[in-house]
Design a binder for these strands. Structure first.
Lengths: 211, 211
DNA sequence: TCCGATACTAAACGGGAATCACCCAAGTAC
DNA sequence: GTACTTGGGTGATTCCCGTTTAGTATCGGA
């Protein structure tokens, strides 16, 4: 019964994880490595070593490497979605909601650069399209949440140019561009991040939305 | 003397490329494959096969795979730089020059998606920082060329908010974001590209620059 | 007590980039 | 002509990757 009585097996095999405990262990280890070393750095073997298990064992719990990392990303994107829905329900001006959402989006990206890259900069080179299904759907819901207030603004006739849809896409793209460049080229001579974010938001909102 | 007299060697070895001809052959083959299949698809072996040479031979002419692909990118970015310098010297309003440059930038990206991704979306995962030296320098010169008219605008006191430097970076980032998303997520429900580009440019310029 | 399911393992596969030790042709010096 | 150098070429090898295969230890239940 007690652990101490366990006879040493001939193999150094790790005992079964009780229940679905092992799955969580793998995700936790993978997340740590992924955050520290990015997609390419988080190899199956490294993750397995960190858990103290053979690389093959990961395939008991996950279909492949991408599933592990996308599952991690799902968690993170879920947080982003939660932020967005929270902001969406605040009783404030639609423009203010848009601003808050985009700010939250950019801070999220800068706080989780590897996750952000995996989900939003992932070329089809690195990760195949079909596997992204679940994560992409979460991203869609984020965007939908964000589109809400934009369409309110459009419906109120406050868009200086373009449709609500294109305005939403452009706002998203501009913020994406800023954080993507900050993440992938961190050594450039950037103006202070806060100012860049402010200029992006103020500039675009002032240019797109009439008072 | 004549080629016809050449005795067949025991090996099917490809004869030496005269002069530095082989180097060009490799670049041409690599470019074709890279454009068609992207970074991961352009493997050393595929390129070597296309040239009709062993994979090892590529290392006679290039330090590693990245050097080949970055050299290709240099050519493309050179074109972009030429476009920018051309526009820079036109006798038109600074705002108009900015607009033209950004438009040219976006069209270039959409026309050369793989090159664009390699240079501007390249995570450190995929391609190490030091190797980017030459290409990054070209990119810098592009940005410098682009910054010129922006600083003119700033000097004329026509900037509604932020410094010239931050305005330039924000404008670049916004355009980057748009094309990066269009390239990496081509299947989304995008508004027409022309409208997205127009709304981005009109919106931001209207928001940042006073008449 | 045996049995099947489950969670694990070592070993191997195939394919990437890069390197190794060697090879051959051509030029040049003597 | 003969030796030496040099530059472009090669097949085999190394190392790492994700993934697969075939086999093994352990456990819950009949």
């Amino acid at each position: 019964m007690t652990v101490a009585l366990k006879k040493p097996h001939k193999s150094a095999r790790k005992p079964k994880g009780d229940g679905h405990l092992r799955r969580g262990e793998i995700l936790a280890a993978a997340e740590k490595i992924f955050i520290a070393e990015g997609y390419a750095g988080a190899t199956i073997r490294k993750i397995a070593d960190a858990v103290g298990v053979s690389s093959t064992a990961l395939y008991m719990h996950f279909r492949d490497k991408d599933q592990i990392l996308l599952e991690i990303s799902d968690g993170a994107i879920g947080q982003l979605l939660a932020l967005n829905t929270d902001i969406a329900h605040r009783p404030i001006d639609a423009v203010a909601r848009v601003k808050l959402m985009l700010e939250a989006y950019m801070r999220f990206a800068l706080d989780n650069p590897n996750t952000y890259q995996l989900v939003f900069c992932g070329s089809r080179d690195v990760i195949s399209k079909e596997k992204q299904a679940a994560t992409a759907e979460l991203g869609d819901r984020c965007f939908a949440e964000f589109s809400g207030p934009i369409h309110e603004i459009a419906a109120a006739g406050r868009l200086r140019t373009g449709s609500g849809e294109s305005a939403a896409q452009v706002l998203w793209a501009a913020c994406h561009g800023l954080v993507a460049l900050l993440i992938t080229m961190p050594d450039r001579n950037w103006a202070p991040r806060e100012e860049l974010m402010r200029v992006t938001l103020d500039g675009l909102l002032h240019g797109l939305v009439t008072d």
